[in-house]
C-alpha cells in the first residue's frame, strides 16, 4: 500500500516524471470531454459525428481567411530573404488589399499609404531609434 504513494525520482529519468503525469491527466480529461459530448448528442437524439458540427461560420469569408493564412506563411518565409523593410512594405500592402478590397483606386492608394507609413515608422522606431534587431 505504501508503495502506491511513492514516486521514485531517479536522476536520469526525472525529466519524464511530470510530462507523463500531465499526459495521463490530459487523456483522462479528454475522455471525459468526449463522453460528455457523446451523451449530449445521444440526448438530442442525433448520432455522434464530427460532420454535423460546422467548423467554420456559415458563409465564412473563404478568400480573406485562407488568403490571410497564405499571406502569413509567405510573409514569414520571405522575411529573411527580403529583409524587414521590403517585406513589410509588400505584405502590409497585400494584407490591406486582401482585407479592405480593391473597390476603387482610392482604397488601393490608402492601402499603399498605410503600408509605407507603418513599415517605415516601425522599422525606424524599432530598428534605428531603439536599436532592436530586425530581420
Amino acid at each position: 500500500m505504501a508503495e502506491l504513494f511513492k514516486i521514485n525520482v531517479i536522476y536520469s529519468t526525472s525529466h519524464l516524471v511530470v510530462p507523463k503525469i500531465v499526459t495521463g491527466i490530459l487523456i483522462i480529461l479528454g475522455l471525459i470531454i468526449l463522453v460528455q459530448e457523446f451523451m449530449k448528442k445521444k440526448k438530442e437524439g442525433t448520432t455522434f459525428s464530427f460532420k454535423d458540427k460546422k467548423f467554420f461560420e456559415e458563409n465564412y469569408d473563404k478568400i480573406k481567411f485562407w488568403g490571410s493564412l497564405v499571406l502569413f506563411v509567405l510573409y514569414i518565409a520571405l522575411l529573411d530573404i527580403l529583409g524587414f523593410l521590403i517585406s513589410g512594405l509588400i505584405f502590409v500592402f497585400l494584407f490591406n488589399v486582401l482585407f479592405a478590397g480593391t473597390k476603387n483606386i482610392k482604397s488601393i492608394m490608402v492601402s499603399g499609404i498605410i503600408s509605407i507609413v507603418s513599415s517605415v515608422s516601425i522599422w525606424y522606431v524599432f530598428g534605428t531609434l531603439f536599436n532592436i534587431t530586425l530581420p
Partner: peptide, 20 residues
C-alpha cells in the same frame, strides 16, 4: 476605425515581437 486597416499593421508588430 476599420479593423481591416489596423490588422495589417498589427501583424507586423506581432512579427517584430516574436522575432525579438
Amino acid at each position: 476605425i476599420p479593423p481591416a486597416r489596423l490588422y495589417p499593421v498589427i501583424i507586423i508588430m506581432c512579427i517584430v515581437g516574436a522575432y525579438t
